[in-house]
Write a protein that binds this DNA or RNA. Structure first.
Length: 424
RNA sequence: GUGAACGUAGCUUAAUUGGUAAAGCGCUUGAUUGUGGAUCAAGCAGACAUGGGUUCGAAUCCCAUCGUUCACCCCA
């Protein structure tokens, strides 16, 4: 019979991997909590219309990457390709943005039908952060500082760099788009094929083309930063001042643009050169018009998405996985014979009552002393507690040190908790 | 969606001009009647990704499908 395998581009995370994920998630949660951000959860399925209206009808994501299907009612549903639109929808639906600010985060799978490669999968996981109701550059600085703190917590600060840009107001960006198209039309036949296509669909994306000839042409192209409206210019300058004051290094990249239509003003990306072609670990920016665009009251907002797979990959690539993650058991309990098993189960339950943070693994499935000891060694435990006939007869447990050169001890069951507390 | 490389045991890999599948790691057992790690011995383990074709004969050559990887594209 043909074996059923996972969907292309969607991967299982095995126990060896999940410990690293848990470590990253815990670090992120700690940082987010320290800034007073609260978690929000929303469904992975939404009405297709939500993404069409927010991401933009002519973006690649909406045109050819969404998992869209009809449900049994005939409604068009889509597996979320990103979280911001869902978050706005949920907040609006429950009045979270009415005359108040919100600092929120979420975590979970996103879906895009792309060709898989390193750092890119069809089901991938993001941590998303969104801050609503604050229009000043101080909140932009806060979310950037928050990410910088996470890199420090994970030891990644030397591996990632911050790129910063401002897209200006929608009007300013539209004016710039016209100027850029005018310029590029004049040398249209020198552009690469992809960029010629983008001239109609999404001209700003030509700015970050990887084609060298195209990049050479762009050297004389009009610059986005020269077309900023005054307010956006002030906002951007103030943000840079705040980051400088906080000693966050950044590089202004006037060619940094976003693939989703809803961004305006501040955009930023944390990038690395350690992950091949998919070097963006975290990216975001302002989207002051999105809430209104989705039918709510005009609400300024800023946020970012962080690619979990890329972050985990980066930690592995740099050898920053803590050794302690390999250990999943502290104490392994060896019991030979039915009576010993009875006693061992009771003893291990008492130990768990007394010391809930100890990780105890009871040997199950029988076997000789030798094979049980082998399992104890493999288990990563530092101690083995041994219960056999001799121990039962004397009401003791043998304690063997598996990772240090210390003599085995016999300890009365009644004294076990106290003795182990000092031994572990 | 485009291009290239690749798919052999749980994992990593070998197999000469096409001649009917090896090894290491891991796992099990034993050497040691109640004691792990090192060593030694034995054992378990494979429709050689799937389906077709060429051939007396295919892991090897050809085609298709599926999958993996990297890059383009896209983006977190």
């Amino acid at each position: 019979m043909k074996k059923i395998q996972a969907i292309r581009g969607m991967y299982d995370l095995l126990p060896e991997q999940t410990v690293l994920w848990q470590y990253v998630e815990a670090a992120a949660m700690e940082v987010l909590q320290s800034y007073g951000y609260r978690e929000i959860r929303f469904p992975v399925l939404e009405q297709t219309e939500l993404f069409k209206r927010s991401i933009g009808e002519v973006t690649d994501i909406v045109e050819k990457e969404m998992y869209t299907f009809e449900d049994r009612n005939g409604d068009s549903l889509t597996l979320r390709p990103e979280g911001t639109a869902c978050c706005v929808r949920a907040c609006e639906e429950h009045g979270l943005l009415y005359n108040q600010t919100q600092r929120l985060w979420y975590m979970g799978p996103m879906f895009r039908h792309e060709r898989p490669q390193k750092g890119r999968q069809r089901q991938f996981h993001q941590i998303g952060v969104e801050a609503f109701g604050m229009e000043g550059p101080d909140i932009d600085a806060e979310v950037i500082l928050l990410t910088a703190r996470l890199w420090r917590a994970l030891g990644l600060d030397a591996a990632v760099t911050l790129q910063l840009n401002s897209l200006g107001s929608n009007a300013a960006r539209a004016a710039y788009k016209d100027a850029l198209v005018d310029y590029l039309q004049s040398c249209r036949d020198q552009l690469d094929e992809d960029s010629q296509r983008r001239l109609e669909s999404n001209p700003l994306r030509i700015l970050d083309s990887k084609n060298e000839k195209t990049q050479a042409l762009l050297a004389d192209a009009p610059c986005l930063l020269d077309h900023l409206d005054d307010e956006s210019k002030q906002h951007f300058e103030r943000l840079q001042e705040l980051l400088n004051e906080s000693s966050v290094a950044f590089e202004v990249n006037p060619k940094l643009v976003r693939g989703l239509d809803y961004y305006n003003r501040t955009v930023f990306e944390w990038v690395t050169d350690k992950l091949g072609a998919q070097g963006t670990v975290c990216a975001g920016g302002r989207y002051d018009g999105l809430v209104e665009q989705l039918g709510g009251r005009a609400t300024p907002a800023v946020g970012f998405g962080l690619g979990m797979e890329r972050l985990v990959l980066l930690l592995e690539e740099l050898g920053l996985v803590p050794d302690a993650l390999e250990q999943n058991v502290d104490i392994y309990i060896v019991a030979v014979g039915d009576t010993a098993v009875n006693r061992a189960l009771q003893v291990s339950e008492v130990l768990r009552d007394e010391m809930p943070h100890w990780r105890l693994q009871m040997h199950c499935g029988g076997g000789s002393f030798k094979s049980q000891m082998k399992k104890a060694d493999k288990s990563t435990a530092t101690l083995a507690l041994i219960l056999g006939e001799d121990e039962l007869a004397n009401n003791v447990v043998s304690v063997k040190f598996l990772r240090e050169d210390k003599p085995q001890q016999q300890i009365a069951i009644a004294d076990l908790v106290g003795v182990l507390q000092t031994a572990v």
